[in-house]
């Protein structure tokens, strides 16, 4: 497209089909302890990531 670039494709609805295993980290345990930041957590279930078309990258080293 000429006027619009896709930065990321739809993903939320897709994750409903495979998510909810509960094995991921509690967000407050990672670094914050005072502010709730959930969307930067990574999915712990690699199988689900693959099923949902995700690449399973470790967010901590993104772009390095």
């Amino acid at each position: 497209m000429k006027h619009i670039q896709t930065v990321s494709k739809p993903c939320l609805n897709q994750s409903l089909a495979h998510g909810g295993c509960g094995e991921c980290q509690s967000s407050c345990q990672s670094a914050c302890k005072t502010s709730c930041t959930v969307a930067n957590q990574s999915c712990a279930n690699k199988e689900n990531q693959i099923l949902a078309g995700r690449d399973g990258k470790v967010n901590h080293s993104f772009g390095k």
Binding site: V7, S8, K9, C11, L12, N13, S15, L16, H18, G19, G20, C24, S26, S27, C28, S30, A31, C32, S35, C36, T37, V38, A39, N40, Q41, S42, C43, N48, Q49, A52, R54, D55, G56, K57, N59, H60, F62
Partner: peptide, 21 residues
């Protein structure tokens, strides 16, 4: 930490509803 956002491989919707737990 606060500029991290996993737009394609982040938490599933159920996690996003429940937050820090």
């Amino acid at each position: 930490f606060h500029f991290m956002v996993d737009l394609t491989g982040g938490p599933c919707l159920k996690k996003r509803l429940t937050g820090c737990g």
